[in-house]
Amino acid sequence: MENALEIYQEQLARRELRSLSGLLAGHGLVLTEEDVSSLLELRRPALQNAGRVELGGGVLPKLARAFCDSPYVDRESFPTVLGDLQDAFYYYKTESLDQFSDEELIEYMVKVFNGPAEGSAELLCGLSLEELCRWARNGGAISFEEGIY
């Protein structure tokens, strides 16, 4: 039963991600079926670690839409970056006690990713929620020492 539900949810996510192929192609990006499978496989532990549950297609399509026009992603790095961002998103969401909407949080992540983090998903993911908010508001440059490692 649980498997059937997971399969059903994965199908929803796949469908939503496929529907973005036109938009992604416009930015020279592609998510292959293999990429999507890897991302969905990463989703389960990411949700578990953050103590969250998703019903429906999940946050991946939102992240793909928000980050596809970043100057720092290309065809090769995009699936990996998406996986890292998915992980970070769930972490921030829970850390914020759900006080941020998906859109607010993604907006902050985009600002930091395209700004002070200069396209480093590793750097972005190492920030605490408080640091993310600070850097999103104030900009500037982040050094690796700023994050939590």
Binding site: L47, G51, R52, V53, E54, L55, G56, G57, G58, V59, K62, Y90, K93, T94, D98, S101, D102, E103
Partner: peptide, 14 residues
Amino acid sequence: RGRAGDTSLRTETA
């Protein structure tokens, strides 16, 4: 809770 567009929720709430 004013979060109509959100895609996830905490496990305990679910």
